[in-house]
Amino acid sequence: MKQHIGVLMLMVTAVVWGSGFVVTDIGLDYLNAYQLMAGRFILAAILLIILFGYKFKKITKRVIWKGAILGAILYTGFVLQTVGLEYTTPSKNAFLTAVNVLVVPLIAYAVYKRKVDRFEVIGAVTALIGIALLSLQSSFTMNIGDILTLLCAVAFAFDIFYTNKFVQNEDAILLTIIQFISAAVISALFVLVRGDIPTSIESIGTGGLFSIVYLAVFSTIVAYLFQNIAFKYTSATQGAIILSMESFFGMVFSVVFLHEVLTGRMVIGAALILAAIIFSEVKPTFGKRQPKLLKPD
């Protein structure tokens, strides 16, 4: 039952993150990537402290260093993705970010010698092909935006992997609070060093404010709380495959709000992603053994 709840929470996260592509695109019309990230993480950290500040009674040095690591990884991934989006197309950005689906089991193998489940590999490859059909619109040529987005995919893969590992024996909400405080501090330092502090609310604009609030409340607080709690009950690779659905939902929001034309290739890509998720979910019924969660440290 708990595993099903975890899957549902990850699906909600994928929906929210899918909408985040549209909102981020709006925000970049008013703010640069560093300002947008700083506003997002600072507001998210403040709201989390207000809502769950009582959990600081349980704080330990172990939670602090784990949360700090996750915050640094998280900020790195989002900045690389957002800056990359300024130099490449949204379709390439979404596809290259989705490479994290394949990177997660490779990290598990390289760092902890965890055997790569053949169903995880098949599901990940299938999801990646689906994302390619769903998102890749133009010719696949590399530029600085593509390279930054590939690096972002690696960062997100590490975030998924270590979040799954750390939450096994820590309070997921407290870990999330420290994660976002860490990301907020790093993002604020970057804005200060760059001299990008907005001079007034008017300079941010209504669209910029909307983007910051939406990304902070929904794409950050709600989505990451759900993800971090859900990872107590799902494997890192299974979680990565489910979260790859953000590309599908990104397509849906683009069609609804940006009036993007839905093509046959996009439909096939979405179907492949769904097939990958189903394949990942039913594997215990015909696999030799159910994959185990990562062992807590």
Rank of each mutant, 00 (worst) to 15 (best):
K232D: 12
S138Y: 05
L215H: 02
A230P: 08
T163K: 00
F253W: 11
L209M: 15
V185R: 05
I177F: 11
L175S: 10
L243E: 06
F190S: 13
N228I: 11
F140R: 01
F140W: 08
L134I: 11
I178Y: 01
F190W: 07
S135Q: 04
S211T: 03
D171C: 06
S138D: 14
G145Q: 10
S139T: 13
V255R: 02
S139F: 08
Y233P: 07
I178G: 02
A153P: 08
L175T: 14
L150C: 14
G195A: 07
V185G: 13
F257Q: 03
G208A: 04
L134P: 13
A236P: 13
N164A: 15
A132H: 09
F231K: 05
I177M: 15
L209A: 12
I177C: 12
S211C: 07
S254N: 08
C152A: 15
I212E: 01
D196H: 04
L243W: 04
I201N: 10
D196V: 03
F158T: 11
F158C: 13
T149A: 10
F210E: 08
Q227V: 09
V154L: 14
G239H: 01
I178N: 01
T199R: 04
A132M: 11
A236Y: 09
G195Y: 05
T149R: 01
S235P: 06
A132F: 15
S247I: 00
E202S: 15
A183Q: 00
A157E: 03
M251C: 14
G130T: 06
L215V: 01
V154I: 15
T149Y: 03
T206F: 12
A183D: 02
M251Y: 04
T163P: 03
I229D: 09
T220S: 15
G239S: 06
V193C: 03
Q238S: 11
N169V: 11
G250T: 02
V217K: 02
T141D: 14
N169L: 06
A153F: 06
S254E: 08
C152Y: 05
N228C: 12
F210N: 05
Y224C: 09
G239W: 00
I173C: 09
L136A: 13
T237S: 14
F253N: 03
L258T: 12
V185C: 12
F166W: 02
N143A: 13
F156R: 00
I147H: 07
T234Y: 05
Q238W: 08
F218C: 11
Y233C: 09
G208L: 02
N169Y: 07
K232A: 12
F226Q: 03
L189C: 14
A172V: 11
T163N: 03
F190R: 00
A223E: 03
S211M: 05
S211K: 01
F140S: 03
Q227W: 06
A132G: 15
K165L: 15
L134A: 07
F180S: 07
A183G: 05
I241D: 10
V213G: 04
Y233K: 03
N228W: 07
S247N: 10
I197L: 14
F226D: 07
T163D: 02
